[in-house]
């Protein structure tokens, strides 16, 4: 009896939190319909009010997304707990959008052009979806070209200095000095050496990965327990095995630490090099928007960056979890 009671209680509780999660977005949607937009009406040049359609669709999208997650989570206890835990935060997102809409679009307490309402920002997706997609694509391309070459160069250099004492003697001090220089400092040089902005950007982004990853790789290899080498030798291993199957795997956790460090630096470098050198990408888009004071486009680009960079971090974490699966339970996450 009490078990089924408990079950019913837990069901009720979950439904309650599902409502809490969704109510913020419903309220924001209601607000969007309830009051007319006034922001932009009093502009001297080109007075206009934002089109609400994209914003309303986006809110409905968020509503459906979280409803979907809720339904998906309903059938497993651990997922239910996670969903319930996140409910207050998701409520806050909805209420924040509502407040933003109210203060900017509706009441015009926050003024244009610096503080556009959410409908203006989201509407960029309708104004120039293809152009925005193209710039996002440019950013993704530059990031992966730069970062992947940074990882390859970093691991390569790391192996050299981690394995060959002579390489360490000559390269390590250079790495230590150049490693503390922020990659941005090379920008003017990169721009004049590589005539195309894309190459300059690739170079600069790869510099962000190169040094930390090389350093961590070398350190991870040097930290290999002597026992592992000795075991391998008594099993008949020669140098390539000791290097690639003992020292390098031993360095993998370090390499991923290097990659995570480099990630943040690379995002910064990516945006800076697009704002200053490149002829494409979200950073370039921001620069263009600024020149004509279209601040709402800047917000749109920033939101896209937030989503994009979070996804990239998620991807890196996923790969890390896969590669370092042998560490699970060995270390505290």
């Amino acid at each position: 009896m009490s078990v089924s009671n408990q079950k019913a209680d837990s069901k009720k509780r979950f439904v309650l939190y599902l409502c809490v999660t969704l109510i913020g977005f419903v309220a924001a949607e209601v607000m969007s319909f309830a009051l007319p937009n006034t922001q932009g009406l009093k502009l001297k040049i080109n007075p206009h009010v934002a089109d609400d359609l994209a914003y309303r669709v986006a809110l409905a999208g968020l509503f459906l997304l979280y409803l979907g997650i809720g339904i998906f989570s309903a059938f497993r206890r651990d997922r239910r707990e996670k969903f319930i835990k996140r409910a207050p935060f998701r409520l806050a997102i909805g209420l924040l959008l509502l407040t933003w809409d109210l203060l900017a679009s509706k009441l015009d307490i926050l003024h244009l052009p610096f503080f556009p309402g959410p409908s203006s920002v989201v509407n960029v997706l309708r104004e120039e979806p293809l152009y925005l997609l193209l710039q996002t694509g440019f950013s993704i391309r530059l990031f992966f070209a730069g970062f992947l070459s940074g990882v390859v160069l970093g691991v390569g250099t790391g192996i050299l200095i981690g394995w060959f004492a002579r390489a360490k003697y000559w390269v390590m001090p250079v790495l230590k000095i150049t490693g503390v220089i922020p990659a941005v400092a090379w920008m003017p040089i990169a721009l004049s050496v590589f005539h195309k902005g894309f190459y300059a950007g690739t170079f600069l982004v790869s510099m962000c990965g190169w040094f930390p990853i090389a350093f961590m790789t070398a350190q991870g290899m040097a930290n290999t327990q002597k026992t592992y080498f000795e075991v391998a030798k008594t099993l008949g291993a020669k140098t390539p095995y000791l290097l690639f199957r003992v020292a390098l795997p031993n360095a993998l956790p370090n390499i991923f630490t290097g990659i995570t460090t480099a990630n943040g630096l690379a995002f910064t470098m990516l945006v800076v090099s697009e704002m200053m050198g490149a002829k494409g990408g979200l950073g370039y888009y921001i620069t263009l928007a600024r020149q004509v004071s279209n601040y709402y486009k800047i917000y749109a680009a920033i939101i896209i960056m937030a989503v994009l960079f979070s996804l990239i971090l998620k991807l890196v974490n996923f790969i890390r979890g896969r590669v370092l699966i042998w560490q699970r339970g060995l270390i505290n996450e």
């Binding site: 327990q225 026992t227 592992y228 075991v231 795997p249 993998l252 042998w326 060995l330």
Partner: peptide
């Protein structure tokens, strides 16, 4: 060896 000589990544 006495202990701890297995490759932890394998």
């Amino acid at each position: 060896f006495q202990q701890g000589s297995l490759f932890p990544w394998l």
